[in-house]
Amino acid sequence: MKSDAWFRYFAIGSTWFWLGVFSLLAFLLMLLASIMRQDQAHILYLPFTFNNYVLSFSPIYLTIFLRSFYLAGFCTFLCLVLAYPFAFLIARAEKNRREIMMLLLIIPFWTSSLIRSYAMVSLIKTKGIINTLLLTLGIIHQPMQLLYTNTAVMIGLVYNLLPFMILPLYANIERLDMRLVEAARDLGANRLTILKRIIIPLTMPGIVAGCILVLLPAMTLFYIPDLLGGAKSMLLGNLIQYQFLTAHNWPQGAAISMVLTLLMGLMLIAHKLLSHGKDSNEDFV
């Protein structure tokens, strides 16, 4: 086997190179940058400080952080409520129908969310389709101001992120052992009890996976508030973008990103614990 040892080394080496340098090292650099200082002359300099983290929780940033969390949290909740029954319907559909349903779901999952956000702009703008339609039908008498409001941002976020909630839920519901539901029914449990005591606990890993895939992008997809929202809809993503590209305060931007990364870490741990050692990664792709 010695003669092709080089192949093994090449495969392992290139794997380590890509993941070691472009993710591990890059993330360690972000951690480092978040505890460094910045001034006019230097992008980053020593000695280390925790001031960036303290500042991240100062009133100005905290307001944006909380608002961002509230908007993203509400978006995640809406997605969950909309996605759960939908994932169930796909999982219960007959095979041919299910394949078409999945394909139609995967297209918005993979195609550009920028283009879809832009499509939403032309739909809801003051002289857009929705307003024109409602005016013509006489349902409203004045065009609604939808674009550049928080409602528009919410519509845009749910529109873009709903598939990211449906897919992990579907993966979990599909694996659900229906015999458990039947057993519960035979033992006299009603629908609500079955849902509360069996279906929801068993699909909890999918719920958490979906929440991770929706909550984090909802806080960070800066072009959605930028295209659809007003000046007041600044989210965490817009703040990080601002720190890096306009204010040139990299340490502050890195610190805010670290807070976000920490949140992701906590959610991933929760997901791992809920999966009880099963291959928990399957939920994400």
């Binding site: 972000m30 984090l216 992008p217 960070t220 800066f222 990103s257 976000l260 990364t261 992701m264």
Partner: peptide
């Protein structure tokens, strides 16, 4: 990496 928000990946790579 799949779960990480793109913005975090973006700035980590910028720093790198």
């Amino acid at each position: 990496l799949i779960v990480t928000p793109d913005i975090v990946t973006g700035i980590a790579l910028l720093l790198l």
